[in-house]
């Protein structure tokens, strides 16, 4: 009798995992897919303002999640501006003034280049699995693709968004949509990811649209024009001295 109970319980327990992959497992797969030892990419950021849109191109080198170095390529005014991120510190170098300015504290919450992203948004470098506990809430279609809908709730305190919803492609394990919520449940931001391409053997979304849901406007579009994984990046790039070069 006792054994049968254990048997039934363990079957029930196991079946929860076997029907579809567990939420944590999905997240882990996404992370495996999206993150790499290092990467080098060129991107365009299209910012829609009240006066029209403008495009900023940049080249970014990043190692892991802690170090990144970005050089802006265009428009001419921004070209040569460099941004260095080490852990939670951020420096910006402008060639026209030959100055390195540290952005710290609450200034990190300002918007970057008039976009719907703050410096802080760009700097959040922790793995989702480290800070959220995930729950699978269903399967939905997003852009004609089957997705797992995950609900992520913060398990640590110092996060910008208490709850997220992520829609992950069931085949490619690429997120296609993400919604960020306030503690109160208010939808704050929506991110839409598309143009998923296979690069160096992994699926990667190359277009991301960020939209601040509380503000009027068309949001900010982020487009990867080239991306390479596991490149050799010289260590000196991630020093303040490199900013001036």
């Amino acid at each position: 009798m006792k054994n049968t109970t254990i048997l039934i319980l363990s079957i029930l327990f196991l079946s929860a995992f076997s029907v579809s992959p567990g939420a944590d497992e999905i997240l882990k797969k996404v992370e495996e897919n999206m993150s790499s030892e290092n990467r080098v990419f060129e991107s365009e950021m299209i910012i829609h303002g009240r006066r029209g849109s403008r495009t900023i191109t940049s080249k970014t080198y990043s190692v892991g999640d802690k170090q990144s170095f970005t050089e802006y390529l265009s428009p001419p005014r921004e070209a040569g501006t460099k941004m260095l991120k080490l852990e939670s510190q951020l420096w910006i170098y402008s060639p026209s003034t030959d100055r390195t300015i540290q952005i710290s504290g609450h200034l990190l919450r300002q918007s970057v280049m008039g976009s719907d992203l703050s410096y802080e948004d760009m700097m959040d470098d922790r793995k989702l699995t480290e800070i959220y506990s995930a729950r699978l809430i269903g399967e939905e279609k997003v852009d004609e693709r089957n997705t797992y809908a995950l609900e992520l709730t913060a398990k640590v305190e110092d996060v910008a968004y208490h709850r997220r919803k992520v829609w992950v492609d069931t085949e490619r394990f690429v997120p296609l949509r993400e919604e960020l919520y306030a503690k109160s449940g208010q939808l704050l931001k929506r991110t839409t990811l598309s143009d998923v391409q296979k690069i160096d053997g992994r699926w990667f979304p190359t277009v991301v649209v960020f939209k601040d849901m509380l503000k009027q406007g068309d949001g900010t579009e982020f487009r990867m024009t080239s991306i390479q994984f596991d490149q050799e990046i010289p260590e000196y790039l991630f020093t303040k001295a490199a900013l001036k070069q």
Partner: peptide, 16 residues
């Protein structure tokens, strides 16, 4: 001194 602000188009403005 350096002025760090935002340009008319939202870009980063630097001026010494």
């Amino acid at each position: 001194v350096t002025l760090f602000g935002s340009t008319m188009y939202g870009g980063m403005a630097f001026a010494n």
